[in-house]
Nucleic acid binder design. Structure first.
Lengths: 95, 95
DNA sequence: TCAAAGTGTAACGTATAACGTATCAGGTTG
DNA sequence: CAACCTGATACGTTATACGTTACACTTTGA
């Protein structure tokens, strides 16, 4: 697992889907078939890449749906790691 | 993306964590630090592997947290694909 | 200068999901 | 028969993704 704070996926989307293609947020949201509000929340880290959104991103901007979701996976894992105490859990070894 | 119906992750957990180690559901839930209800729901496909659960599974049964979550990712993607119509979305090409 | 466009975000509603406690019904087993 | 394991329910909390509507701000072009 990564030790550093991974960027939220919205930053990657902003860089590679909006700025690189010189799109507006409004137009990109329309192309994805979601509201501007939904896409803005994703871009600004207030929501994550859902499985449905991964399919939309894949269709409109390319890359695999899995690729988009793995981005989110890394971020979610890092966040979950911050807020959970697993010190009391013990490894179960095979009999 | 896989074309076939992927098993829900609970089946894999049941095979590799419960039956292979000859554990009871109750004891495995205790080891994971969750209630029997929560773990039973996971085993029987009524809930998925959350990021937090992935960390618990990794600590107690081994494998990477990413590995557990990718299992869930494949399943979620397959399900999302079933219930969404993206035919109207068009690929945006680079300028 | 003024209007239009782009943007972030708020309120409010929907649906889904993961977790908990408490409880019940059914099965197995010593 | 009693103890245990299991699946499932009802009820609650918290969180998230998505929608519509609306507001305030900035930038840009006629």
């Amino acid at each position: 697992m990564r030790m550093y704070n991974p960027p939220h996926p919205g930053e990657i989307i902003k860089d590679f889907c909006i700025e690189a293609l010189d799109l507006t947020v409004t137009d990109a949201a329309k192309s994805l078939g979601v509201t501007r509000k939904t896409f803005s929340a994703l871009l600004n880290g207030r929501s994550g890449i859902s499985p449905e959104m991964a399919l939309r991103l894949s269709k409109v901007f390319g890359r695999s749906p899995e690729g988009w979701l793995k981005l989110q996976l890394q971020y979610d894992l890092w966040k979950a790691q911050q807020g959970i105490d697993l010190k009391s859990l013990k490894r179960i070894k095979a009999a």
